[in-house]
Design a protein around this nucleic acid. Structure first.
Lengths: 345, 345
DNA sequence: CAAACGAATGTATTCGAATGCACGATACCG
DNA sequence: CGGTATCGTGCATTCGAATACATTCGTTTG
């Protein structure tokens, strides 16, 4: 039957191209993957093959190639929440670097939950990505070591709290950043009673930023007031909740240092809804510099991290390892921060 | 103490498992992929195999499986901009449905550019995903047809403007939504001079929403004033720009209908910076209901689409086709909208 | 009691591309 | 003019898992 072919039009393979060009399949492969070091092909053959490729609309089958080369040209990335502008920008930076290396990025949200973090690792290992970038929040050292040992691929993480001897770390010295910003609030702005809106101690940035805050108070001769030290869970809603709790307790500090912008915005909105003026009654300082920080009124004073730089550093560290597997040990890369002064302080 | 395992240790394969369990490789395969309809395995063998799997920490190689089965358990999704809350929620909904089907989602941003849209198609076809969900903005019918024909996989898109005879469409009747909201502004709120902030006609939602707006004016006995009909490019910055242009021209309408929330927020901020009161001097109506709409003050009145529902409809349509390839033709799925009244009108 | 059946497992092949090796042809050298 | 690099290409094999087909039993049935 003549319809045998047309009934189930399959993607053409290298064999089809080879047949049309009158050469063998490996020759097609060589034409398409020619490198300086590899075998040479005559211009004549090359031209015929390329013509055949064109005529058939041939596309290499990435799956077959990956099976043979043991490389998938894909890296996995796990972050807490892509809707967070900070992570989003970071992810885009990673993608940009990856694209330069002809890699794709498989992105996953962990939603700050341990379950999703583990699920990501399972998937990623099964998928056979070539490397992993992640922001582990809940994963233990033991988990990380387990997955790392099983996978035999490089890992690069954001967060100085990860101590694994063979995993590269990009970090921001947020303890120092919080320290400096707090000192600035006290010394330059003159706030005397300061509160801190943090997150649970089991979440990595919590204790570090609290330490920086507390140290600044001490160094300025103030003391940490437990009434004004209170935790949320990173969400805008929890920022509002914190304010309600403070108001119920009856007294407010003159400035609040908040561990992330989303909560800081919640704090501002809740304060305003309760009739307080920001910054005259209570000043608010955030952390991250997400796009919403410029939308809220008063615009949010915040400690800006450089998510683009962080993403680039993560990606570059990973690709260095992919290109040179002999790199060993734990490498550290510090990314900078900057205080962005707006109207909320 | 992290395990220091030899770096060259390979992942175990089915052969390794088979050897350890004293069976053949296909038997291992059968034990792991047992279905009701497939061959049966004795409980004894099954137990030995599973024990061996456990002992070696075996994980199936997804790449090899994909090559053989011709399925990658991955779908590709292209959207304009993941940092946009609307697309983000939609993407999450797609991922949720995908997860239920044991599928992964490869996400890509097009940034509203034609180049990126085509690049996505190239990559996705090469990657061999099993299906595609996208929000094509610039791709022409010819492009879509070309990629669709080459790939032999199902496509599902968001946007009624796509007319391909074999591509399913999910859409929101945004022309009617804009019409109704505009009528409401005129009839119930009493605004008499209305302006429209749109986007270029070559961007799909532009003409549709403008038509709805214009039709409402006509039906209420008003006429479209070209001085108050002006275009931006979806970004917050361009929303601000539009206001500057209007102010330079010397006159402002009493209400502005804006085709998306991000621009609407830019409009509000720029109006306030110029000393105008929203909504007393100028009312603003947005479209999308992104999270920032509740952060800006006054909170933005907007037409809410249901991104979660849209994502689910897209994903379900796609999986229906994946599970039943005999489905033919262009199927239409409408998703609802709702006017969310806040303080900007 | 032999033929037939079916459950349980093994054997051989397949998916598409990459690559080590071998072979033929040409060119160069003594 | 024979020997040997060198170049271009083909052949055979490989990656790991799925699957069509073959085989081996034990069991059932006419």
């Amino acid at each position: 039957m003549p319809t045998k072919r047309s009934a189930k039009r399959k993607q053409p393979t290298m064999y089809d191209v080879a047949k049309l060009a009158g050469v063998s399949q490996p020759t097609v492969s060589r034409v398409l993957n020619r490198t300086e070091t590899s075998a040479q092909i005559s211009a004549e053959t090359s031209k015929r093959v390329l013509a055949a490729v064109d005529q058939l609309g041939y596309r290499p089958n990435v799956v077959a190639r990956s099976l043979r080369t043991r490389r998938t040209q894909t890296i996995g990335m796990m972050i807490a929440d892509l809707s967070n502008g900070f992570y989003h920008t970071m992810a885009r930076a990673v993608q940009d670097v990856a694209r330069q290396h002809n890699y794709e990025v498989l992105i996953s949200n962990s939603d700050h939950t341990y379950e999703h973090e583990k699920h990501f690792c399972e998937i990623v290992l099964g998928r056979g990505v070539d490397g992993v970038i992640m922001v582990p929040i809940h994963l233990t050292e033991a988990d990380l070591d387990h997955y790392f040992a099983q996978s035999h691929i490089p890992f690069v993480v954001l967060g100085i709290h990860v101590q694994h001897p063979n995993i590269d770390v990009v970090y921001v010295n947020d303890e120092r950043a919080t320290y400096e910003a707090t000192r600035w609030l006290i010394t330059d702005c003159g706030y005397q009673t300061l509160g801190f809106v943090g997150v649970s101690d089991i979440l990595p940035p919590g204790p570090r930023r609290l330490r920086g805050f507390a140290r600044a108070l001490t160094d300025c001769g103030l003391t940490l007031d437990p009434r004004f030290t209170i935790n949320g869970d990173f969400t805008l809603e929890s920022g509002k909740q914190v304010v309600h709790t403070l108001i119920e307790r009856g007294e407010l500090p003159s400035a609040l240092v908040v561990v992330n912008d989303l909560m800081a915005i919640g704090v501002i909105l809740a304060l305003q809804e309760a009739g307080y003026n920001v910054p005259d009654d209570v000043a608010v300082l955030g952390f991250d510099d997400i796009p919403e920080a410029t939308i809220v009124r008063p615009a949010l004073t915040t400690i800006a991290q450089d998510p683009r730089d962080i993403g680039q550093k993560l990606a570059r560290a990973l690709f260095e390892r992919l290109e040179n597997p002999s790199i060993e040990g734990r490498r550290l890369f510090e990314s900078s921060y900057k205080l962005i002064m707006r109207q909320s302080t």
